[in-house]
Simulated scan of single mutants.
Amino acid sequence: MKQIYAFENKEDFEKFQDIIERFTQKLLKYQYELENKYGLRDLPKGIVWTSEELATNIFSQVPIPAYTSKDIIYISPDLKSWRELFVSQLEEHNNPNIKEFYENMSENHLFTIVGHELTHHSDLFVDEFDDERKDSIWFEEGMCEYLPRKILLSEVEFNEITKVESEMVEIFKEKYGNHSLDEFGKASYQGSLTSIMFDYWRSFLAVKYLVEVSANNDVKIVFEEYLKWDKEGRKIPLTQYFKLDSLLN
């Protein structure tokens, strides 16, 4: 997997060189975990390390500086800009605890976003990533949030992000929650940052419930059911298949 650096000047690259090198080494270990346990066979062609500005205005118009496009991962390693971005998710709400969490978001949490993008390349997901995805995007996105967080974060860190995103769902469910999770992806990256992230939070929490409650912490069982749902022809929505209606309402 190629490591590509796309910055406007040498100074920007030098500013982020150390964190990029740390992430590159850590990613090799996470890659090994995915290859051995979670169906990673074909790696992306490369990772483009770049600035938030270039990621969201030049390479793409996606408002979040981490995404995969044509088998290449684009991501900004700028922790400061990520903190500011996540604080802005609160919109007009004044929640000091959540604001403080995002203002001090750790490098570990940022690295799970890199892990998220690599997890998308697992062969355990039945939809091709670059194709139009429907019916189950929430499962893939939720699992791509859950696995790197569960594997890479400490128990304390994992519980912190779970608490924060649970609270964010409660804060914004009246404003942004008037649709089924199965509709996630139908209006991809349209609307405000918070409206986009709302379904990521819900997806993570749904997958966490499936793994830790429904499957008694056995990720393999959850994937087996997901693949069974697909093989049987997707006769009912995936949330209904997993009996998540009561959890999500």
Results as ranks from 00 to 15, higher is better:
residue 96 P to G: 12
residue 150 K to A: 13
residue 79 L to F: 10
residue 85 L to V: 07
residue 149 R to S: 11
residue 132 E to T: 14
residue 133 R to T: 13
residue 70 K to C: 02
residue 102 Y to Q: 05
residue 105 M to H: 04
residue 126 V to K: 10
residue 96 P to I: 11
residue 123 D to M: 09
residue 90 L to K: 05
residue 117 E to C: 03
residue 148 P to K: 10
residue 92 E to C: 09
residue 89 Q to I: 15
residue 117 E to R: 00
residue 70 K to Y: 06
residue 90 L to P: 03
residue 71 D to S: 08
residue 78 D to N: 13
residue 138 W to A: 08
residue 90 L to M: 13
residue 115 G to N: 06
residue 140 E to G: 05
residue 97 N to Q: 14
residue 82 W to D: 04
residue 101 F to P: 00
residue 107 E to C: 02
residue 125 F to T: 08
residue 142 G to H: 07
residue 89 Q to W: 15
residue 148 P to I: 15
residue 150 K to I: 10
residue 92 E to Y: 13
residue 123 D to R: 10
residue 147 L to T: 11
residue 103 E to V: 04
residue 125 F to P: 00
residue 81 S to A: 08
residue 125 F to L: 04
residue 142 G to L: 05
residue 79 L to H: 06
residue 126 V to I: 14
residue 94 N to E: 13
residue 116 H to S: 04
residue 118 L to I: 14
residue 134 K to C: 04
residue 81 S to Q: 11
residue 70 K to F: 04
residue 151 I to C: 01
residue 75 I to H: 01
residue 114 V to R: 00
residue 117 E to V: 06
residue 96 P to W: 14
residue 90 L to S: 11
residue 89 Q to D: 14
residue 82 W to P: 01
residue 102 Y to E: 09
residue 70 K to E: 04
residue 96 P to Q: 12
residue 133 R to D: 08
residue 135 D to N: 12
residue 86 F to E: 04
residue 80 K to N: 13
residue 116 H to I: 09
residue 89 Q to A: 13
residue 98 I to P: 01
residue 127 D to A: 09
residue 129 F to R: 10
residue 131 D to G: 09
residue 94 N to A: 09
residue 135 D to R: 09
residue 124 L to M: 08
residue 96 P to T: 12
residue 94 N to G: 00
residue 125 F to N: 02
